[in-house]
C-alpha cells in the first residue's frame, strides 16, 4: 500500500523520559529519526553453521517492511538481533537511533513485539494481561487502566475484558497480543509471523488492524512466509534465503522486474512433455511437482497449444510474489 510521509503521534511523556543522556542521531531536539532500523553487514553463526550472512537493509520510519523467506532462512534470528536478544557476530545494528544490542533496552522502550508463538498469561484475564504487561514498562496501574479501553476496542475485544485468555480463540489471542504490544504506545512494531496458523477470517481482521496502525504512522517490521500478507501490507520487502538477501524492493516492482508477464499454471499431464509443448511461447518455465509454471510471453498461443488435450487443466493469472520466490530460488516459498 502507498504510504504518505509518516504522521507521527505525539510521544507520550513516558515514552521519552529515558532519553536523557542518550546520543540521538538527529541534531534537532525532539526530531524523530527518519530511519527506524538500520542493519549493516550483519553476520551470525551458531558454531560452524552460518545463519545470517552479510545482511544489510534499512527500514524507514513509517513504512511496513517485510522479511520474507522459508522457515530457517534467518527471519527470526534477525528479528531477535534487532531486539537485542541475540548478539551479531559482526556488523552494526541501529534501532530508533540507538545502537543494539549494547543499548537495546532503550530501543525496546519504544518497540512493541508480537512474537511468533503466543506468550500471553493463560490463567489471567484479558484485562490482567494488559495490566501486568504495562507494569513491565513502568506504567502505573492508573495509567494502564486509562489506556485499556482503547486497546480493547482496537483489538475488538471489548466484550472479553474479563474472559480468561485460555478461553479465547486463536484469532482473539493474536489480537490481544497485538493490543499488548501497543501498551507502551511504541513507534516501531516487530511482528514475527503474526497470522501463521490463523483461519482466513481472523487473518483478514489482523491485516485490517495492522493497516490502521500504519495509517497512524507506526513503523512495522513484519516477518512472514505468507505471500498474500507481504503483498497486501508491505511497502518494501526483503527476500531471504539461508541468511542471504536475494532480492529487495517494493512488492509490485519485484513482480514486474522478476516476472513481468502472465503466468499459466498447467497440471494434469506429464510435466516435461507439457513444458516442451509450451516452451516456444514462454519466457521461462519452472516445474514444481506436477505443476508447470509457464511465464508466458504469449498467453494466447499457450492456451491454443493446451486446448483440447485430454486431462490437462490450466489457469492463467497475474504474477505474484510466490512466482518471484520460485523464480529466484527454484523452490516454492511454503513451509
Amino acid at each position: 500500500m502507498a504510504q504518505e510521509a509518516p504522521r507521527w503521534l505525539e510521544p507520550s511523556p513516558f515514552e521519552w523520559k529515558d532519553q536523557t543522556g542518550l546520543a540521538v542521531k538527529t541534531a534537532i531536539p525532539g526530531a524523530k529519526p527518519t530511519v527506524a532500523i538500520d542493519v549493516a553487514s550483519v553476520t551470525k553463526s551458531y558454531g560452524d553453521k552460518p545463519v545470517i550472512n552479510g545482511l544489510s537493509f534499512t527500514v524507514a520510519a513509517g513504512e511496513c517492511f517485510g522479511l520474507l523467506g522459508p522457515n530457517g532462512a534467518g527471519k527470526s534470528t534477525i528479528t531477535r538481533m534487532i531486539l537485542g536478544m541475540t548478539t551479531p557476530g559482526t556488523g552494526e545494528i541501529t534501532v530508533l537511533g540507538v545502537p543494539v544490542p549494547s543499548r537495546a533496552r532503550l530501543a525496546r522502550m519504544r518497540i512493541g513485539v508480537v512474537p511468533q508463538f503466543d506468550n500471553l498469561d493463560l490463567e489471567f484475564t484479558v484485562r490482567e494481561n494488559l495490566l501486568v504487561f504495562g507494569r513491565y514498562f513502568r506504567m502505573s496501574t492508573r495509567e494502564i487502566e486509562a489506556v485499556i479501553p482503547s486497546l480493547l476496542e482496537f483489538a475488538r475485544l471489548e466484550n472479553k475484558a474479563d474472559a480468561r485468555v485460555s478461553d479465547l480463540s486463536g484469532g482473539m489471542k493474536r489480537r490481544l497480543t497485538l493490543a499488548r504490544a501497543l501498551i507502551n504506545d511504541p513507534q516501531l512494531l516487530i511482528l514475527d509471523e503474526p497470522t501463521t496458523g490463523l483461519d482466513p477470517h481472523a487473518r483478514h481482521l489482523i491485516w485490517e488492524r495492522l493497516r490502521s496502525l500504519l495509517a497512524r504512522g507506526k513503523t512495522i517490521l513484519l516477518t512472514t512466509h505468507i505471500m498474500e500478507e507481504a503483498e497486501r501490507l508491505c511497502d518494501r520487502l526483503c527476500v531471504l534465503e539461508a541468511g542471504h538477501k536475494i532480492a529487495e524492493g517494493r512488492p509490485h516492482m519485484l513482480i514486474d522486474e522478476k516476472i513481468g508477464c502472465q503466468v499459466i499454471e498447467i497440471y494434469g499431464g506429464d510435466p516435461h512433455e507439457l513444458s516442451a509443448l509450451v516452451s516456444p511461447h514462454a519466457r521461462h518455465i519452472e516445474v514444481s511437482g506436477e505443476t508447470v509454471f509457464c511465464y508466458a510471453s504469449d498467453p494466447e498461443q499457450v492456451r491454443v497449444q493446451l486446448d483440447g488435450r485430454a486431462g490437462v487443466r490450466f489457469l492463467q493469472r497475474p504474477p505474484n510474489l510466490e512466482d518471484v520466490f520460485l523464480r529466484l530460488t527454484g523452490r516454492e516459498l511454503k513451509d
Binding site: V113, D118, N119, L120, D121, L122, F133, Y136, R138
Partner: peptide, 12 residues
C-alpha cells in the same frame, strides 16, 4: 509458558 520471553521484549 514463555513468560520470560514476553518480559524480555519490554525494557525489563
Amino acid at each position: 509458558q514463555r513468560t520470560w520471553e514476553a518480559i524480555l521484549h519490554t525494557q525489563v
